[in-house]
Design a protein around this nucleic acid. Sequence first.
DNA 1: ACCTGAACACCGTTCAAGT
DNA 2: ACCTGAACACCGTTCAAGT
Lengths: 203, 203
Amino acid sequence: MARRTDHTREELREMALEAARRAVRREGPAGLTARGLASAIGYSPGTLYNLFADLDDLIVHLNAATLETLEGRLKTALAQTASPEASAAAMVSAYVAFTLEEKALWGLLFEHRLPPGRELPTWYQQRIGALLGMLEEALRPFHPEEASRALAARALWCGVHGVCSLAAGGKLASVTDQGAAEVSEVLLKVFLAGLEKTAEGHH
Amino acid sequence: MARRTDHTREELREMALEAARRAVRREGPAGLTARGLASAIGYSPGTLYNLFADLDDLIVHLNAATLETLEGRLKTALAQTASPEASAAAMVSAYVAFTLEEKALWGLLFEHRLPPGRELPTWYQQRIGALLGMLEEALRPFHPEEASRALAARALWCGVHGVCSLAAGGKLASVTDQGAAEVSEVLLKVFLAGLEKTAEGHH
DNA sequence: ACCTGAACACCGTTCAAGT
DNA sequence: ACCTGAACACCGTTCAAGT
């Protein structure tokens, strides 16, 4: 039975994304199925393919929303930080906290692999670039030299990503008995100390 | 037609694992299917379940072999290193090289999530522990203090893991135009500098 | 003892047919 | 214009029946 008046196309897309979010939170990525989503929003499987190209397309849009939430958390964390020196620590700790809170959604965001030959949309990469820009800025007090700061920020972000990746996958416990917050704090502290030492060398 | 004389049970298991390796290398984790594997070794799907409990069990055994290869590479890299100071760099670079060479198998090893409630075998964790022990030893020149060296080694390994995870998933390019070798080198160098600075502080 | 292959309960995706 | 639901081509896994 056609119900085209019940919901606008945009409402339907939101409903599908919310159902997907719930499924991933509850059962992990494997719980996200076209048939399950369709039944969760009260439509037939075919309707999903009217809203999204396919499941991968739906996942990309779900990931966009997750990325937006993550951006918001990081901005809030930065805004509540008084000293510039504490900015990097605040960002890292907000990032790790978000990962632990939303293990499955975070995993979908950063570990979902598109089928070969399919590219991530450009806005996706731009948003990640914006996040990295924030971290780069936060590293300014520790690494004044413009030229190499970008690479340093990116290396640090990759490192924190590794801690989060292991934590989200439940594998951090095979590495250490410390939690993600502690490990990332050590990584950050030692890295920042290293940046300062390098900076001294340039004086 | 039963062919119980053609191959021993152990041979069959090896054949299945080799077919799985080939499938993962060529098509990624999604290419690893019970039906495909069975046909690749010339047996029916049911036979696979005589050799392994299920696909997850097969994957765990495939990962064990991958881990063994990785261990070998790291030991070789260490053996060819003259100075203790260069050991950590040699290990990191061998680790990254292996990841880039075997992106898909590496991804299966470190990013395959077992269904909830299922644990990794203990020998799995012991082997990872051994690798971490090697890295910990390599950090000795940079971080003489026994107590916190273990955590430092683990934090560094998580960091390098992050670079590898992004590189293996094809996502490092959205972060930086540098390759995994360059990023991990920066991460290592800054981290080691940070360790030395911390050590000086303790004198 | 080992192996088969049909069977069961699922998938993602498409598309003619309906409203 | 939108939605359905059957259909197609796949899955993982089990298990009675064969050798």
